[in-house]
Computed example of a mutant assay.
Amino acid sequence: MSITGTPASYLGALTRVAMHESGGNPRAINLWDSNAKAGHPSKGLMQTIDSTFNAYKLPGLGDIWNPVANAVAAIRYMNARYGSISNVPGVRSAKYVGYKNGGRKRGNDPVLVGENGPELADLPDGTQIHNTNKTQELLKQQKGNISINFSPVINIKIDGGTGTTESNIDRAVRAALERAFKDFIPIINSGVAY
């Protein structure tokens, strides 16, 4: 995820994709679907076909069976095809249960929260997690006293050559900010964030 600049909040979604696609097996190969029948079986952790893997792999990550290389290519493909991991059909339609009805966190391990996609929360034992209705009620009571921070982390890899002009770097940063803001917009458009 860090290689592609993917926020930690997508860990649950990417895990769900990997488990759905390969059961978490980086050596998985699909020999029965339409891709396989066409001579292009899906391979590896995220089940990419050779042509997709080759189009989205990064230098030094050219082994489709390597789970990191396979995940990097798959993440880059998902972002290119759907604009964001949160828009991938299997991710978007998934029903997350977790703490959606609220509850009290037990233990010190991070938990996944969020009804419109996974959000990793590293909270102390006993922390109260409120459901959507209670959260909206609390936010409305705090109108004007809520602070929302938008602090995306953008990683830029500069390899040199003709693609590293200032304007190309500027375009890459702007595109990354737009993708991050697109994921952030539902939060501020929820009707309870002011």
Rank of each mutant, 00 (worst) to 15 (best):
M1E: 06
M1D: 05
S2G: 14
I3W: 15
T6N: 05
S9M: 14
Y10W: 13
L11Q: 07
A13H: 13
A18N: 12
E21F: 04
N25D: 08
N25Q: 02
N25L: 01
N30K: 14
N30Y: 08
L31T: 14
W32E: 15
S34A: 14
A38K: 09
G39V: 05
P41V: 07
S42V: 05
K43V: 13
L45I: 03
Q47P: 07
T48K: 03
T52E: 09
A55L: 05
Y56N: 02
K57L: 05
L61N: 05
I64L: 09
I64Y: 02
W65V: 02
N66A: 08
N66R: 01
P67H: 05
P67V: 01
P67G: 08
V68M: 06
A69Y: 01
R76E: 10
Y77P: 11
M78G: 01
N79D: 15
R81F: 13
G83K: 05
G83L: 12
G83H: 15
S86N: 14
N87R: 10
P89R: 12
A94P: 09
A94R: 02
Y96T: 04
V97F: 11
G102H: 01
G103Q: 02
G107I: 03
N108F: 06
N108E: 04
D109P: 00
V111S: 01
V111N: 05
L112P: 08
V113Q: 04
E115H: 03
N116I: 05
G117A: 06
L120P: 04
A121C: 03
D122F: 11
P124Y: 08
P124L: 01
I129F: 02
H130Y: 15
H130D: 14
N131R: 15
T132R: 09
E137S: 14
L138N: 10
L139N: 00
Q141R: 13
G144H: 13
N145I: 00
N145L: 13
S147G: 09
I148F: 08
V153W: 00
I154G: 04
N155F: 10
N155K: 13
N155H: 11
I156M: 10
I158Y: 07
I158L: 15
D159F: 08
G160P: 02
G161R: 08
T164F: 08
T165R: 14
E166L: 11
N168W: 05
D170K: 08
D170I: 04
V173H: 03
V173F: 03
E178H: 09
R179E: 15
D183P: 03
D183F: 01
D183G: 04
I187R: 00
I187M: 08
I188W: 04
S190N: 15
V192E: 09
Y194P: 12
